[in-house]
């Protein structure tokens, strides 16, 4: 193999490696998750460190404008009410850039939160870095985190349940089943699911 060929091969390998790397962004179940410290609709910063008694968190990337998110609002409130007292509060995070999705601006988040009477923090990931770190691609997109000493471990990634359009027709409550397992000290039986959702609106560079 001559020098040019070697160089070519090397470059190809580097390119492939970079490609591979850029595709593997975001968390997988079992990963350690970074905590959060983001602006809430009430004007305060909310951080995971403020929840000394929590056993973990139900992090839901969601927003105002997406019909799938809207369809789940009441269910998310019910989930928060049920699991907050068991140690798993809901933390809702709006991942969208407000220029790309004007209905998801901070001021519109405040309005929506009041209209619906959200019982949970509704945080803005203003620079979208947490969204990218977690690998949230759509709304709603759930990440269940369990505290383990000083770490947060990702235990479930995916959908809330198996029917976005009709809460009464739900057969599998993926999120609740996962939290129930964690509360019993088990691993979730189903720890990764998919659902149709609105794409996260990233800021144009």
């Amino acid at each position: 193999m001559n020098n040019i060929q070697t160089k070519g091969l090397l470059l190809t390998l580097i390119a492939l490696f970079t490609l591979q790397f850029s595709y593997s962004q975001g968390y997988k179940v079992g990963d350690k998750a970074s905590g959060f410290n983001l602006l809430n609709v009430d004007g305060n910063m909310v951080s995971d460190e403020q929840y000394a008694d929590a056993k973990g968190f139900i992090v839901i990337f969601t927003c105002n404008h997406c019909p799938f998110s809207v369809a789940y609002e009441d269910r998310i409130i019910a989930i928060d009410k049920k699991y907050k007292k068991l140690g798993y509060p809901v933390i809702a995070i709006n991942p969208n850039d407000s220029i790309e999705a004007p209905a998801d601006s901070y001021s519109k988040m405040i309005i929506r939160s009041e209209e619906k009477g959200f019982t949970f923090p509704y945080l803005l990931d203003a620079d979208q870095s947490l969204t990218k770190t977690y690998g949230a691609t759509r709304t709603p997109h759930v990440f269940i985190l369990k505290k383990n000493d000083n770490d947060l471990l990702v235990e479930y990634i995916g959908a809330i349940d198996d029917n976005h359009e009709d809460a009464a027709a739900v057969k599998k409550k993926f999120l609740e089943d996962a939290v129930d397992s964690l509360l019993k000290g088990d691993k979730p039986e189903v720890d990764f699911t998919k659902a149709i959702g609105c794409s996260v609106k990233f800021a144009k560079l």
Partner: peptide
């Protein structure tokens, strides 16, 4: 959709 998204394409997140 949890079942059919993968059948359409395994790399699709559903967005």
């Amino acid at each position: 959709s949890n079942e059919w998204i993968n059948k359409i394409n395994k790399t699709w997140s559903g967005a």
